[in-house]
Simulated assay, not measured.
Amino acid sequence: MSVKALYPGTFDPPTNGHIDLIQRGAKLFEHLTVAVLRNPIKNPLFTVDERVEMLTESTAAIGNVSVATFDGLMVDFARQLGATAVLRGIRAISDYEHEFQMALMNRRLAPEIETVFLQPAGRYSFVSSRMVKEVFSFGGDVAGLVPPNVLKRLKGKGLGT
């Protein structure tokens, strides 16, 4: 049985935790679409196009991964792609509570789409996009927490020292 999956998120910026989940998800599914949510309410650091470019560059070597954008309900986009699974990452119990509620709502809206939870590799279990931006903005070293192309773009934003 072949399964197409969707990995939705804001990815502002993509972290090595995201890339870890993408690499592992690509082994589980026939095709994995990484879907960047267009959500201007979150006041992102990077534009949607920049995030798509960073993810495309970071996943170029993975043959069964593509990057797309969406707005509106994630389950509607999953249906449009023919995806029957949604990949979500969980770092901590606090993530689980929020993700569990979203998975139940998504199941109500689209019972044919399953949610699959993966934990990132231990070395990335504390990494979030928000934390990377904050640490970097105060001059902290985030090398090893984001792909090199993302680090270059962070430096281009004039954050940090």
Rank of each mutant, 00 (worst) to 15 (best):
R107S: 12
T33F: 04
A92M: 13
Q101Y: 01
G144F: 03
K157L: 15
V48F: 03
D20N: 12
S2I: 07
P13I: 04
G156R: 13
E112S: 15
T84M: 05
Q23C: 06
G158F: 08
L151N: 11
I62Q: 10
L154E: 08
K152W: 02
F117K: 06
I41H: 06
S58D: 14
H98G: 09
E134F: 05
L45K: 05
P148N: 12
L21N: 01
T115C: 02
P44A: 12
D20F: 06
M105L: 07
E134I: 02
P44H: 01
K27M: 13
P111E: 13
S2D: 02
P8S: 02
S66G: 12
L104M: 15
R79Q: 01
F70K: 04
L21W: 02
R108M: 14
G122S: 14
N149S: 11
K157R: 14
L32Y: 09
G158V: 10
N16Y: 06
I113P: 08
Q101R: 08
S125K: 09
P8H: 04
R153E: 04
T84S: 14
E50Q: 13
Y7M: 03
A83C: 09
I22A: 00
L28W: 00
S2V: 07
M105Y: 01
H31D: 13
E97W: 01
I62R: 12
R123W: 00
V34T: 09
V132R: 04
L37I: 00
Q80C: 00
P147A: 15
S58C: 14
F46D: 05
Y7H: 03
Y124K: 00
G140C: 10
K152L: 03
R88Q: 03
R91Q: 08
G160V: 02
N106Y: 01
K152P: 00
D49C: 08
R91M: 07
A60P: 13
H31C: 09
L151Y: 09
R24L: 02
S125H: 07
V65C: 15
A121G: 08
A110D: 04
R91S: 08
A60N: 15
